[in-house]
């Protein structure tokens, strides 16, 4: 488990596979997480995706995924490395908060800092990359705040609600990472967490 200020990153549970995955793949969040896909998905399809992933792992699939859980125990999404190239020491990040009510509250930032630290300090990667679509300003703000730089803009690389949109690629080199503590200070995450959980306790 990786312990943050607003969230913890924990292993997947049965609840995740049976309830959350089905919920997230069928709510509004899906379009944002998949660059525009929105077709409703049955439980049987979800089961097949889970099966395919398990088979992938047996063939040496290198991804590392965590469930995002708030400090008061609510599962809100997942984050991790979709793919790691251990030869070039580069990891590809992905994040998906499936509960709309939790967007924009700093949970994604807290989770991202944990994963970046894990990738650099434990997996010894030297570069991280991720992609999003031009429409997803929230994700762009999220990753830029944490030190990622825009490296590429593929024109009209996805289609969302009938419109062509650019796909953006971000990257961060280990030497550019100021460290989790520095970013926690800079982004005022401690204050955000104190506020969030104090309100709850009252």
């Amino acid at each position: 488990m990786l312990s943050g200020l607003l969230v913890d990153l924990v292993p997947f549970t049965r609840e995740w596979y049976q309830e959350k995955m089905h919920a997230y793949w069928n709510n509004e969040s899906r379009l944002w997480a998949t660059m525009g896909e929105c077709m409703p998905i049955s439980r049987a399809s979800i089961a097949r995706i889970i099966e395919e992933r398990a088979q992938g792992r047996a063939r040496g699939y290198s991804g590392v995924h965590f469930m995002i859980r708030t400090k008061d125990g609510v599962t809100i999404g997942n984050i991790g490395l979709n793919w790691v190239d251990y030869h070039s020491r580069c990891g590809y990040l992905g994040a998906w908060i499936g509960e709309e009510g939790y967007w924009g509250g700093g949970y994604g930032t807290d989770a991202l800092l944990l994963v970046v630290e894990y990738a650099f300090d434990w997996l010894d990667l030297r570069r991280l990359a991720l992609g999003t679509m031009a429409l997803n300003v929230r994700a762009q703000r999220n990753v830029e705040k944490c030190g990622f730089r825009l490296e590429g803009r593929e024109r009209q690389a996805t289609l969302v609600n009938g419109e062509w949109l650019d796909a953006l690629t971000y990257g961060m080199l280990r030497g550019e990472w100021p460290g989790r503590e520095t970013l926690i200070e800079r982004l005022g995450l401690r204050e955000k967490a104190a506020q969030r959980y104090a309100i709850q306790e009252e």
């Binding site: 580069c90 590429g152 024109r155």
Partner: peptide
């Protein structure tokens, strides 16, 4: 093709880490 970006030090190549240039054509 149009140059659309540079993935910095993306690839391990011959003892070094090199960039990868991205191109696209519509």
């Amino acid at each position: 093709f149009v140059h659309e970006g540079t993935l910095r030090q993306h690839i391990r190549w011959d003892g070094d880490y090199v960039d990868l240039e991205m191109f696209g054509l519509l």
